[in-house]
Design a protein around this nucleic acid. Structure first.
Lengths: 134, 134
DNA sequence: CTAAAAAAGACCTATAATGTCTTTTTAGGG
DNA sequence: CCCTAAAAAGACATTATAGGTCTTTTTTAG
């Protein structure tokens, strides 16, 4: 249960690698993919998602590539994971009140809310800087 | 991410319902399924799994059905979830050391270990008795 | 012996995961 | 103004998992 997909793992590897490089140094996708051992076409899709929400900044054309969208200590693991895996939802019923038709009598509900919050807190306290440091 | 499957949700609903009934009272699968609104054939598969590991006790033949395998306060939500969803594994790399070829240098590893432990702790502290009480 | 019930196993469909391939857009340098 | 390098976009393919159903077998009380 709760297993990160390949996509999620690749995403983390890729962006952590980027965070480990000198800031402002534009990195080729192909170089990143080779460095973290991920299929380049797949990583491309992932970085496109990152780019859309500003986690990375992309430059097209000759001399193009990627840099982090913000300082590595301002990007959390939570953001990275949720960017590619979607929100952390232990159960449908935590998405919104009323989603669960039995939520009035359901004693399980608060447990999932608790799980969700604990996990989010944990991931939110980890920055790319921490992950990238030697 | 981390979403419980239908199977997991049905499993919880079914066994919590069983826990809410008078102990020692044998319940028909068809009755449980109707009460918690789950396809009976699907719930049958789930209860077969429960039965194999002793979470419930089954009686075959006329007058048969299911009761809890132990007192409701001795069964945790963690056991129920892991019985049908498998172990709680935020990432492959936490399964065993060496599973992750990069685990020596991987700073993400301890985060997943932490997530795993926190979630297991949370679920382990919830008993069927708590979940079944009005 | 019969009927009621769970167990077991084969089967099926839809969706998501995990990619690949091709075409398009953008931009820098000669 | 081309040419080339690079990312963006979108269609496509394959496999695994989710979410079931259906049929047959086994067990057991009466």
């Amino acid at each position: 249960m709760m297993e990160l997909t390949r996509k999620g793992e690749y995403a983390i590897r890729g962006i952590v690698y980027l965070a480990s490089r000198p800031p402002e140094q534009v990195c080729l996708l192909s170089d990143i993919a080779a460095a973290v051992d991920v299929p380049p076409t797949f990583l491309a899709k992932i970085f496109q998602q990152f780019s859309k929400i500003g986690l990375v900044k992309s430059y097209r054309g000759t001399g193009g590539g990627f840099i982090l969208g913000r300082a590595a200590d301002k990007i959390t693991l939570l953001e990275v994971v949720e960017a590619v895996e979607g929100p952390i939802i232990p159960n449908r019923c935590v998405i919104s009140t009323g989603e669960c038709p039995r939520d009035i009598t359901c004693n399980v509900h608060p447990v999932w809310v608790d799980v969700q919050q604990k996990v989010r807190d944990l991931l939110n306290n980890v920055t790319l800087q921490k992950l990238a440091e030697k």
